[in-house]
Each structure stands twice: as structure tokens, then as C-alpha cells.
Design a protein around this nucleic acid. Structure first.
Lengths: 141, 141
DNA sequence: CTAAATGCAAACGGTTTGCAATGCT
DNA sequence: AGCATTGCAAACCGTTTGCATTTAG
């Protein structure tokens, strides 16, 4: 994956976001760590690289990313908001045992919705939860 | 809809929940107000009837309802948790204009998931958002 | 009488806000 | 210099917690 600085500066500009140090590093982190991180995770990860980083800046930057469609929100029954650099339609599965959030593909074109035919649907989210394969196997041991 | 006290006492017992004044009134409220209410909405609605009611009790009771499967959580990109007395699989549509949460029917059997074939899926949630028909018409006026 | 249910008040923690400091051109 | 970006500290608010009080069988 292309994640050099020049490429990311351009990427940000395509989304009408002025590239700044923090914005570039946050974009890089999100692209290289597609684990649907929380604000805290992003903050602590970047703190090693940017010792003066504040959580406020992480919030600010994520707000900008959100408004400009670079990231989307993931909120599966939890208080901490998570962020996803992949804004295309896909499902999220949260393992109740290990807490990990997995992506999965869905063929939403087969999904028929009844009752909202005349609504303007701007966003769709599909959240599953349960036990992932790894945790199932651990329990069986 | 049957919502007399005797019926609801029995309903709670079926879910292994001891009927108490607050539990019965909360169940009644949830059954008669399927608006996916927040804790605050439930609290203020019942306060008229139970002047000594505390939010703690609303939280406690909802926890019991949740654990016993009488209600399910609705968390569409918002901080306030909402509760749904309908625990069957259906979609939720949140209007970004008026904030109302609508239910809609989905034929999830047509939905193919790829990537989580070996996971134990215990819960599925489908959240849409956009502009509801009413708000669309208001804007057009 | 006893255990469960309810309520009060404080703490908690993620997020927001106002403003000051810093950086960039 | 002037404007955008970043950071600090406090406030905010929904939720949780510990414990005291009340209720019900």
C-alpha cells in the first residue's frame, strides 16, 4: 500500500483537507492499522511519534476526517467510538470474548427493506456480534 | 394490546423477572411507547407516575430487562443508549433531521455474509440513517 | 424479619469547549 | 504579521458504583 508522505498529502487534498503533520500521521496510522481504533488507541499510538500530541487534536482531526468522508464511525454497543478508514458498505462483527472487531463482506443488494421506501437512505451500517473463530477454538481446548 | 397489570406480571415471570412496581410500569411504558426511548425519556415519563423514581432504578431495571432478553439495545451513532422492546431482527432508520428512529422490516435470509462463516453470530443489528419522508416533504415546501 | 428493590450522591470516563500557545506562509 | 493548527484545562453529561433506605412476602 502506498503510504508515503507525498501520496498522503495529495490524498488529503483530494478530500479538501489541508495536510498538516498530525493529519498526515493520523491518516497513515488509520491506513496501516485497520483495527477500527478508538480515540485512545490512536492517541497512544501516535504519542510515541508526536510527544506533544493532545487528545483534543485527535478529536479535532477525526471530526475533520468524518466531515469530509475519509473515515466512518463504528459504534457497536460500546461507549468508545471507533473509526474506520474504509467507508464502503461492509459489516462489522464484534467478538464478545476478545473484543476484536472484524470486517465482513455483505451483498446488500439482496437485502429488501420494507417500510422506508420513500426515505432518503444516506448511510447503512450492519453490526453483528458473537464469538469469533479463534475464541471458539480456545474455549474448546 | 394487552397491557393490564396481571398480564404483565406474568410476562415478567416468563422471563424469570420478579414483578415489582417499577418493573411493571417500565414494561408497560416500553410496550406502549415503541419509540426506542433513552433512559432520560423513560425516567421523565415515569416520574409523573412515580414521583420518587430515580435514574439509578431505571438503569437497574433496564439492565435486568437486557440480561433477560426483554429489550435490546439500539445505538445509532449517538451517546445516549436507546432501548427497544422488540427484540426480533429488524432494521432501525434514524432521521438526521428530526432525530426519530423508525423500524423497518428486512429479509435477512437473503443477506450473504462472507468472512465470518465460522463465527458464532449471536446478534445482528442493521442501522440506516438519512432523511425520513416527513422531513423530505417539509424541506420541499 | 429478611432479602430484594429502590434511591441518593459521588465518582467515572469519554467527549466537548473556550481559549491560549504554537506553527506555517 | 495573520491565520490555521495544536494543546491545555475545565466543563459536560450519560453512566456506574457504593452504600443507605425502603418495600414486600
Amino acid at each position: 500500500m502506498k503510504t508515503d508522505v507525498a501520496w498522503m498529502k495529495n490524498y488529503l487534498r483530494e478530500y479538501s483537507i489541508k495536510p498538516s503533520t498530525i493529519r498526515i500521521k493520523m491518516l497513515k496510522y488509520l491506513m496501516e492499522n485497520k483495527i477500527h481504533p478508538t480515540v485512545d488507541e490512536i492517541y497512544h499510538a501516535l504519542l510515541k511519534d508526536i510527544p506533544t500530541l493532545s487528545k483534543t487534536s485527535v478529536y479535532n482531526t477525526l471530526d475533520i476526517f468524518l466531515k469530509n468522508g475519509i473515515v466512518s464511525l463504528v459504534t457497536i454497543e460500546e461507549k468508545e467510538t471507533r473509526y474506520d478508514i474504509d467507508t464502503s458498505l461492509h459489516g462489522h462483527f464484534k467478538c464478545e470474548s476478545c473484543g476484536k472487531v472484524y470486517d465482513f463482506h455483505v451483498n446488500a443488494e439482496n437485502l429488501k427493506e420494507e417500510g422506508i421506501e420513500d426515505f432518503d437512505v444516506l448511510d447503512k451500517k450492519i453490526y453483528y456480534s458473537g464469538i469469533c473463530e479463534k475464541c471458539k477454538n480456545i474455549k474448546e481446548e
